[in-house]
Design a protein around this nucleic acid. Sequence first.
DNA 1: GTTGACTCTCACGTAGCGGCAGGCAGGAGC
DNA 2: GCTCCTGCCTGCCGCTACGTGAGAGTCAAC
Lengths: 252, 252
Amino acid sequence: MAYTVGQVAKLAGVTVRTLHHYDEIGLLSPSGRTSAGYRRYDDADLQRLQLVLYYRELGFPLEEIAAIIDDPAADPAAHLRRQHELLTVRLKRLQEMVAAIEFAMEASKMNIQLTPEERFEVFGDVDPEEHRAEAEQRWGDTDAYRESSRRVARYGKEDWLRNKAENEEWGRRMVAVLASGAPADSPEAMELAEEHRQLISRWFYECSYEMQTGLADMYLADERFTAYYENIAPGLAGYLHEAIHANAISRA
Amino acid sequence: MAYTVGQVAKLAGVTVRTLHHYDEIGLLSPSGRTSAGYRRYDDADLQRLQLVLYYRELGFPLEEIAAIIDDPAADPAAHLRRQHELLTVRLKRLQEMVAAIEFAMEASKMNIQLTPEERFEVFGDVDPEEHRAEAEQRWGDTDAYRESSRRVARYGKEDWLRNKAENEEWGRRMVAVLASGAPADSPEAMELAEEHRQLISRWFYECSYEMQTGLADMYLADERFTAYYENIAPGLAGYLHEAIHANAISRA
DNA sequence: GTTGACTCTCACGTAGCGGCAGGCAGGAGC
DNA sequence: GCTCCTGCCTGCCGCTACGTGAGAGTCAAC
């Protein structure tokens, strides 16, 4: 029993192009050709195709399918386990994405009368995002984090603008002190470290000296924060780190 | 506040190449360049990047992200709904794949002492596969289908070979009658139609005349089956269809 | 002999980057 | 002033699993 590409395509429910492709990559080459060059598939070819399609259904990449089928030493069960792991990871990721979308849809619904797109930026905006990363990395799911989340959730665009303005003002003075050559444990530097703590307390959560020194450590340990401060002024990350520690010690 | 690509990359947790790509496709072009041609990203660029990454997290294609962000008339909620549908479809598909893999793993475990790979072919083999499609399309989830499934599940490779041999023998005689020029309602043709029914009854499920005529109709309606019979001999699909109907009428 | 349905072989296009190559730019150290 | 190191630049090919033609030959039927 010999079949042409078109017949095989109909039988198996795939396109002719797919069969051409499988021939190209050597996954399924027909056992013969007619004198005119037409591909001729026999029953064995059909069986192989069924196997190929079976593994394809299971989400295996074509190259791996070839390996499983052609290598008599290959252990199908092992491949199945690997594939199962892979798929469950993808499945989990997809479930998270769906959950995130549902959350976004909820938010979009609730704020539709006030802020069609701006609330979106509460999640996507750079400052809150950086802050969220900061908090999550450091405390995960603590009281401070929850308090911060509660407060932040009520902030509007103007709040963020005011927050930003205050931050920038503080930043300018910090840079000035750094540029003045005053050491990190000078009164001026320590005063600005104290302001840093109060800014956080006012905008986000009650920030103790202990929490603040933890933050300071992270500013050096996590390159994302390092980059943020180093970009304002070279050396600022380390300077701020020192100033915060000095201030915390002097107040203890 | 201006940042270079590398700084932005670290801040946002993406690669420099990704930023280059976003610049190339116009999704996120830095607001300026230095005299040396270095990309300069400002705060607004960072905000846009956060938005982009947010939508990317939700699984949106980059082109659609650009549309959502750039088109002020675009309705984010509508996009969210569409994306939600899309993702749930993918999710369902993935869940099916995982279920199929788990099934395969079970089968692989249970038959490991008898048939390491051959049992696989019970699922992947062309004949059973075609038969499964046949049954599912026609009856979905009926007694006949369940009976067939039960029987088929116990067949070994030799059973399939015997089945195949009987089928081919029947096929040869069928082709002979067709070639002889005898009409489809001749006694010879009807006898072979009857054998067709008994073959099915013996191997798969109790096949009534009513069921058989249903099958015969499908042999013409579904091009996959048409292709199968036409390939054995041109005209066979229609001939068999007629013979089955004639036989069923004469036996009624 | 001519139509219409198939078939063949290139060969480019897709999404979202990864990863080279070859060549400037800018600051540090000698 | 020279060199070294790091970071930046612009191409450009590669990946998956085919889709979608283009242009040309083939096969059976009317």
